[in-house]
Each structure stands twice: as C-alpha cells, then as structure tokens.
Design a protein around this nucleic acid. Sequence first.
DNA 1: GTGAATAGTTAAGTGCGGTTAGATTTTAGG
DNA 2: CCTAAAATCTAACCGCACTTAACTATTCAC
Lengths: 149, 149
Amino acid sequence: MPSSPQDDLLTTLRQTMGVIIHLTMRRSWRFAKEHGLSITQIMALRQLAHHQEACSVSSIGEGLGITNAAASQLLDKLVQQGLVLRTENPHDRRSKQIVITEKGKDLLRESMRAQRAWMEVLGQRVTPAEARQITEALALLTEKLADVE
Amino acid sequence: MPSSPQDDLLTTLRQTMGVIIHLTMRRSWRFAKEHGLSITQIMALRQLAHHQEACSVSSIGEGLGITNAAASQLLDKLVQQGLVLRTENPHDRRSKQIVITEKGKDLLRESMRAQRAWMEVLGQRVTPAEARQITEALALLTEKLADVE
DNA sequence: GTGAATAGTTAAGTGCGGTTAGATTTTAGG
DNA sequence: CCTAAAATCTAACCGCACTTAACTATTCAC
C-alpha cells in the first residue's frame, strides 16, 4: 500500500514528538518544581500567553479542566506573585479580565530557556545547510499550527 | 549583525517549541488526569521506556528529583496497576530491577495518540510538497537528537 | 421590577504526592 | 567476622491542589 506524504508526515511527527516530549516535559516539569509553581499554574500562564487577549476566570478553569472555584484560587496565587492581572470587565461587571503580566511572560520565556541545552546540542550537530532546511520547515509548521486550540 | 543559520535555527526552534509545548503538555497533562495518574507517574514511565533497560529505585528517584522513599511509594502504585514490574536484582540483592510492562508501554502509546488531533489538523493543512519538506526536516532533527540526555 | 441565570469568590474538607526518620536486608572493607 | 555503607521499604506527618457548597454581585428575560 502506497503511503501519502501526509501519512508519512504523521508517522514522522509522532516519532519526533516522542523525542521532543521526553526532552521538554521533563525540563518544564523540573522548572516548575524549582520555581515553586504547580504544573497547573504554568499551564494557566501558557493559556493566557497563547491567546493573547484577556480571559475570564471560567474560561481558564474550563481550559484546565478544573472548577471555577479552583481556577479562582489558582489565579489568586498568580496575582499575588505578580504574574497575572485581574481587573473588572467593564462590559459585564460580573466577569473579570485576566491578563498575563510582563513578569509572567518573562517567566515563560525563562522556562523556554530551560530547553536551551538540547537545542544548542542540535545547533552544534547540524551543518549550516541542514540548519536552514530545518528552520524553514519548522517555520512552516509553526505557521500552520498558529491558531490551533 | 549577520545571523548564522545556526542562530536562525535556535530562534525558530524556540518559537516552534512554544507552540508544540503548548499543544503537547496540555494534552499530556489532561491525559494523565483522565487516567488518574500524576505527571510524576507518567514521567517515571517515560524514563523507564526511554532507557530500555531495568532501572533501580534510586535512579528513578534521582531522575525525577524526589527522594527514594517517594520513588518507592510511587512505584508501588505503578506495580499495582500492572504498568511496571519490580524484581530482585540477582547481582545485588539489595537492589530492585524496575522495568516497564507491555501495559505500561501501551499506556504511553495511548498518550501519544492523545496528540493525534492537532497532528491531523497539520496534515490537512499542508500540501503534499510541504508535507514532504517537513517530514524530511523532522526526520533529520530526530536523528540528530537521538541520543541526547 | 422581580425572579432566574451567570460570574466569581470564600470556606471547609478531602486526597495525594512528597518529606523525614527509622527499620530491614544485603554487600563491602579492614 | 564485625562494622560501615548501600538500597529499599514502612510509617507518620505535612502541604497543597481540588472539590463541594454556600454566598455575593451583576445581568437578563418576562
């Protein structure tokens, strides 16, 4: 049976993700522990950073699969640490607008930096031509995934 | 200042990883929750699956950044669920050999399947030519990272 | 307007992952 | 041998993330 380029892509993607997940999850998780944050808190920050605009408390809870009460408590701690801002929604005063602060973004950036080691190894192992090839492909991949949930 | 292909690669990699991590961590984390497992337990399984051979209790604890006592308790639960096997080390009877079972590997495979959705979206969005391009680059990337950490 | 629904917070309670401390068994060293 | 060290397990305890339930404040619908 002939395999389509799309099928090949899926197969390769699964393989690559196996490696990537092993490298990144591990580091993300240790990063969280070292900074005294829970994975959930990191996930909340990521979610806020991901769809740029302000989120409601309940949308965050839903995104994380926890109750609104839990989300509210979780956000308390993030606010306390200055990682997010909680303001009233002028259009609906029942609702709150949650946005990530610069400090919060910094933290996420720093967590990315925890990935740096293996990325640099990769950088050292590829030729300039290979680097260009991979860069191009990744840029394409990122573009295609830009708006995926 | 001119940027080398390697620098470009790092920059793009960081960006791509931002997206990828958002997609994969989120799903891995939900998968764990839905299966009543902690991230730590998943990490332990990953570690066991990664370096194929048997591990000691303490090496797992070390890998996870927890005490041996915690590792021992954690493994209890994994053994109970049939995800790992704990046997005596014939060469040093103080030590135990921990190996992942088929059931454990199945679980990891299933957690990979949880990533399928976004991968398929990607598959639908690229042209066959783009699919080939990305596949090639990812295969290269995987090859270069095969033995890291 | 009044009652119902929505958004969020607060409080009390639970479960679980983790720690420390101490016991057990086996190996290694002089 | 006999002591010290190593690998694991057990037990008691702690903190924290979540849940449920009750409460406040706002908006919507008739």
